[in-house]
Design a protein around this nucleic acid. Structure first.
Lengths: 127, 127
DNA sequence: TAAACATATGAACAGATATTCATATAATAA
DNA sequence: TTATTATATGAATATCTGTTCATATGTTTA
């Protein structure tokens, strides 16, 4: 039976590409080894946080020292509100933690792992 | 002289947060250690590519086997055009390479480094 | 040559996202 | 208490981004 002949295939297997060019054995093998859908969605969400210049800069400055919102805003020359919104994103993804001291809130990296990830990315773009 | 008194500061140092809460010594120190602006922009662009579920899935399937566009489309149950567009993004960021064999174009990961990055991300979201 | 096929690509559209503005909340000082 | 200050947040807006659709390109086969 010719796997490249769609006339012989049940409707359920007809799809986007009309299955004409599909290399079945490879596809089936890879399908089995794929992580769960949710895991892949989470992974993309995770990297999406790093995929913004403002957030990357925040992570970088926090990798050097804990810092309050206003310090970060001044360092990056951006509005306090913008920074605060982004810190919320970073907080939700558990990339930063914070402590309150009077009126001031000090943010810092949640763990050292994050610097490793930044370094790994830097390594790749400088190759 | 009180660094927190903006009345004594030149206009050039007045900014978003009115410099009232800035911890100068920390800020200045961090400023020196910051990577160049362009490097940070590039880093964000790099991670942005990983920050999309479709692209992450493509990278994952390619980590298992080289594959043609149509195979990928079928595996992910998406249109050929969508996959082709995303492969272009991955190609531009040098995350995938390709070879032509007749009408078919086979894509594969540009280097092993990419699997490391995916694994690192997976590690972090499963902690 | 013409037909079939795999892939690429431009345009359009819908949905997501980052910043700004105005304002709310929380803590301190007067 | 009121005023001041640091931060947080909802709404609005402008921009960006991913998919679809239609079609173009490049290759093979008849």
């Amino acid at each position: 039976m010719d796997p490249d002949n769609k006339k012989n295939m049940p409707d359920s297997e007809i799809d986007q590409c009309d299955f004409i060019c599909v290399h079945e054995s490879v596809v089936n093998q890879v399908l089995k080894a794929m992580p769960r859908e949710q895991e892949l969605l989470d992974l993309a969400e995770f990297y999406k946080v790093f995929g913004d210049a403002t957030r990357v800069k925040i992570l970088y400055v926090l990798s050097q020292s804990e810092m309050c919102v206003c310090d970060i805003a001044n360092l990056l020359q951006m509005g306090q509100s913008a920074i605060s919104h982004q810190l919320r994103v970073l907080k939700q993804m558990r990339l930063v933690k914070f402590r309150r001291e009077g009126k001031t809130v000090f943010y810092s990296l949640a763990d050292g792992h994050i610097e490793t990830i930044l370094a790994q990315g830097m390594e790749h773009i400088n190759e």
